[in-house]
């Protein structure tokens, strides 16, 4: 279980990104975080694996205090939390295989990994991960030779290499067209259901939220303004979260 308690984040330039954010995520949930851009979604997700240092507050994961972890302990926490990014964050000039294997870095020794010695097991696992996202035949291609959707699938395969118990997905489909959005989220849903991996995902489009989330929290100006089931978000709530001028954009298959 992931517990976020009274989390605050103030950036050095004075921007208050998160103010007193508290919520829990049960194991096996598909939690979606919604909110305007700049509402603190990205900061929140990055605080969970400490890519960003929270200013105040506590994050407990399986009883371990993530906020207090340092050095090797922190890397131990991180390697069990997969992360997927809006811009995929692949090393574009490296091969797909190398990108996927990089997900194992938290598990292997420094020296061996630096000279490129990977165990047969790791390689086999990488191939399985790639098969799982349907890209096994692209293993030796360079990452920048792939389309956006394919790159995001490689990123998912990289996260899988961590054998994660939790996946953080920061706007995983914001750079993709609607068709690809569904395919990526379906992979995440599949992992959530079959492997019982908890997913915390920030999303932009309401119909995607309705389709995939088991629970939703909404952020506005760094504060939690809503916690509940996706069905509870109707037009009125939506306007409350996104402001008066917002119009619901459909990311449907027909779009």
């Amino acid at each position: 279980m992931l517990e976020v308690q009274n989390l605050h984040k103030v950036y050095p330039n004075g921007t208050r990104a998160l103010t007193d954010v508290s919520f829990n995520v049960e194991d096996g949930e598909f939690l979606v975080v919604i909110g305007l851009s700049g509402s603190g979604k990205s900061t929140l997700l990055r605080c969970v694996n400490r890519l960003i240092e929270p200013t105040q507050g506590k994050i407990l994961w399986d009883g371990v205090d993530v906020t207090a972890a340092t050095g090797a302990e922190l890397r131990g926490v991180r390697r069990r939390i997969g992360m997927i990014f809006q811009q995929f964050n692949l090393v574009k000039r490296s091969t797909v295989m190398t990108n996927v294997l990089a997900g194992r870095l938290g598990y292997v020794g420094t020296a061996g990994s630096l000279v490129g010695l990977w165990s047969a097991e790791d390689k086999a696992q990488a191939l399985r991960a790639l098969e799982r996202v349907g890209l096994a035949e692209k293993a030796n291609a360079r990452a920048d030779a792939l389309s956006g959707g394919q790159q995001q699938r490689v990123a998912i395969a990289r996260a899988l290499m961590q054998n994660p118990q939790l996946i953080l997905a920061d706007e995983p489909v914001a750079s993709l067209d609607p068709v690809l959005s569904h395919s990526i989220l379906q992979y995440l849903e599949q992992l959530n259901r079959e492997e019982k991996i908890t997913v915390v995902c920030s999303l932009h489009f309401l119909d995607l939220v309705h389709r995939y989330a088991t629970r939703v929290i909404a952020l506005k100006d760094g504060q939690v303004v809503f916690t509940g089931l996706p069905q509870e978000i109707d037009k009125a709530r939506f306007k409350e979260i996104y402001g008066e001028d917002a119009i619901e954009v459909k990311a449907g298959l027909s779009a």
Partner: peptide, 11 residues
């Protein structure tokens, strides 16, 4: 981006 992504894997 990749720096962030690999830091997140625990590297």
């Amino acid at each position: 981006g990749p720096v962030e992504a690999l830091t997140a894997t625990g590297a």
